[in-house]
Simulated assay, not measured.
Amino acid sequence: MQSMSIPNGPTALRRIIGAELKRLRLAARKAQHEVAELSGIAQNSLSRYESGVSAMSNPVAEKLLTIYGVDEEQQAELLDLVKRSRKRRPKGEAKTAVWEPVEDLIALERDASKILEVAIQPMPGLLQTEAYARAMLGQGKLGADVVEDNVQARLARAAVLGGDNPVGYWVVIHEAVLRCAVGGAETMAEQLAHIAELSKRPNITLQVLPDSAGAHSASAGSFMLLRFPIAPEYGVVYIDYFTGALYLDEPEEVAQYDDAYLHLIKMALSEQASLRFIKKLSQELYS
């Protein structure tokens, strides 16, 4: 299995652009060598653009999109993404204290049209209250300032769930997440009330996977699957671990996580039953 290496946000955008360029070329029934002849762009450069290894200029992107017959509206969207993919942190600007893999995830979440998540432990970052986030992030050896930066960054991520064009978010939360008393009873009561309220939003689907479901396809741990409107056939699986994170985007790998997710939503409680379960558990454990 091959993992997706994303050293920074712009590289993540290049992978999305590359996947869409490849899809458009194949839809136009053209081989790379044909496009190279038509565009005057070296074939090895085209390969690097499609794999997301190299950034391209807007004139090069515009030339390719014209060859592929892309309409003006989609061209404008892709060219904006191309421009953003070349951005770098200004010289002298301080690097954020936020954990580096999360910087990449934030960039992906902003561009996603759909986020599917499975949480085995802890509560998904997009759903955490301030008190819960602070209790989680305060467990390590980070200084108070760094913890605070990370807490505020985690809370800011939730902006994608609201606004005029919120992301579609479908999350399966294991019962163990609800039972683990992070921050104590008061913090957990607030946290469970928060997710119960969020679950009422039309763009959010929340299901609980109870302990009684038994063995399941996410026994290896939590994961997030992101899809993007600009590249509908491209998906990224995000998995974090103690010292870093993995980004998987090989189609065969993504398909396996798609299958695992479909299996889990069938095993999980319905939305209505999940809401009743959350309220009942909160009363039993945290009232």
Rank of each mutant, 00 (worst) to 15 (best):
Y68W: 10
G40Q: 06
K91E: 12
R86S: 15
G52A: 12
Q74F: 02
L81Y: 04
Y49V: 13
S85M: 02
L65K: 10
L81R: 04
E77N: 09
S57I: 06
L81M: 14
V60F: 04
I41P: 05
S51I: 08
D71W: 02
E37D: 12
Q43K: 14
P59V: 11
A94Q: 11
R48I: 02
E37W: 01
G69K: 06
A76H: 11
Q43S: 10
Q43V: 14
M56N: 06
L78K: 01
L46F: 08
P59T: 08
V53Q: 14
Q75G: 03
Q43M: 11
V35D: 04
A61T: 08
S39L: 09
E93I: 00
R86L: 07
S57N: 08
R88C: 02
E73I: 10
V98L: 10
P90Y: 06
N44S: 15
A55W: 01
R89H: 00
L64N: 05
S51V: 05
I41D: 07
A94E: 06
P90I: 03
V60C: 01
L46C: 11
S45L: 07
L38M: 15
Q74G: 01
T66G: 12
E73H: 11
K95N: 03
G52R: 08
S54E: 09
V98G: 01
A36Y: 12
S51N: 13
D71Q: 12
T96C: 00
E73K: 14
T96R: 03
T66W: 03
A42D: 15
Q74A: 12
N44C: 07
K95A: 11
Q74P: 01
R88Q: 12
A55D: 13
G69E: 03
V53I: 13
A97L: 15
K63G: 02
E72K: 13
L64P: 07
S85E: 02
G40N: 08
Q75I: 03
E50A: 05
S39C: 07
E93A: 11
L81K: 02
A36G: 15
L46N: 12
R48M: 10
I67T: 11
V35W: 03
A76C: 01
E62I: 04
A94C: 00
R48D: 02
K91Q: 11
R86T: 15
V70N: 06
T96H: 00
K87L: 13
N58K: 14
Q43I: 15
T66M: 01
N58T: 13
S54M: 04
L64D: 05
T96A: 05
L46M: 11
A36E: 11
S39P: 09
A36C: 12
S85F: 03
S54I: 00
Y68C: 08
I67V: 13
S39W: 08
L46I: 13
R86I: 07
R84V: 04
E72A: 14
N58Y: 00
S39M: 05
S45F: 06
L65N: 09
E62R: 15
S51A: 12
L46K: 13
A97M: 11
K83W: 00
L65S: 11
R48C: 02
